[in-house]
Design a protein around this nucleic acid. Structure first.
Lengths: 142, 142
DNA sequence: GAGTAATTTGGAATTATTCCAATTCTCTCT
DNA sequence: AGAGAGAATTGGAATAATTCCAAATTACTC
């Protein structure tokens, strides 16, 4: 059981893109991995300040953008409002609980995304599919 | 072949919600029906000014919000950027062409949305599903 | 035709994000 | 180790999208 070499994969990915592994990038990434509640940039900023009190909001935006570029993080947008960030790389949908405002990841059975893609008429070539549910979670979920 | 009594259904829906049919609301709605290219509030504003030169942007926002409340229009958000508005009431997905930036409606076979909903684990009760494709349209589409 | 409530309006305020120029950091080369 | 070059960070200003607000206008009821 390897202890999840977070920094390894991060610095690896960054290097692949010719970028540097900085403390700011590492902490931003670890904050996302640590609490997977789809935080906004502001929320990430607040959490990162615990470890790097002098980090700036601009840097948080820069780091998040970098992580998205490296495909380590997904930027999620539904409804007007700040962009939220999600470190879950597995194919999944989002369930937006209209009562609590919280967003939950929903794992998808393999093949579902391809199946959905197959409804596209010819002339449309999708390289990604995003699925967003809205409703309420009737049972308490993590 | 009835000539689509736009005002009828609009004032009907508004009345159902205890709201008034105003020229501003009618023109905003007709502008959406007229060119279904998912315009932003600013774009709607520009188009409406042709008919109502003194309308304000705040009113356009108000009218759009009202139409969304009455379920005559869907507000669409993917990626940071202004909200877009869609008068298509039939169940459909959106295809976002990353090259042109345009968004196309994609009709969905009946039952697909329910089928997608059926992957939700117990504890999640969705009353809407949104599907967004991203890619390029290989053939020119309206 | 007066009273009441809904709606519109313009401008100010807010929110989220991006831009920018100056500084700091890191890596490489010697 | 030190200089130089490029990358990254920083704070503050600027921008974009939207909302808020209070005053003016409009429409409906009696």
């Amino acid at each position: 059981m390897t202890p999840a070499p977070v920094h390894e994969s991060l610095s690896q990915r960054l290097a692949d893109s010719g970028l540097r592994a900085t403390p700011q990038r590492e902490v931003v990434y670890s904050v996302l991995l640590n609490k997977r509640d789809h935080p906004t940039a502001d929320e990430v900023f607040a959490r990162v300040k615990g470890e790097l009190p002098t980090i700036s909001l601009a840097t948080v935006y820069n780091c998040l953008e970098t992580l998205v570029q490296c495909d380590l993080v997904r930027a999620v947008n539904f409804e007007r409002g700040p962009t939220r960030y999600c470190p879950n790389l597995a194919p999944h949908a989002h369930f937006h609980d209209v009562q609590t405002g919280r967003t939950h990841d929903v794992d998808l059975p393999p093949g579902l995304l391809d199946q959905v893609k197959s409804v596209l008429p010819s002339g449309f070539d999708a390289n990604s599919v995003e699925i967003i549910f809205r409703g309420k979670a009737t049972a308490p979920v993590s």
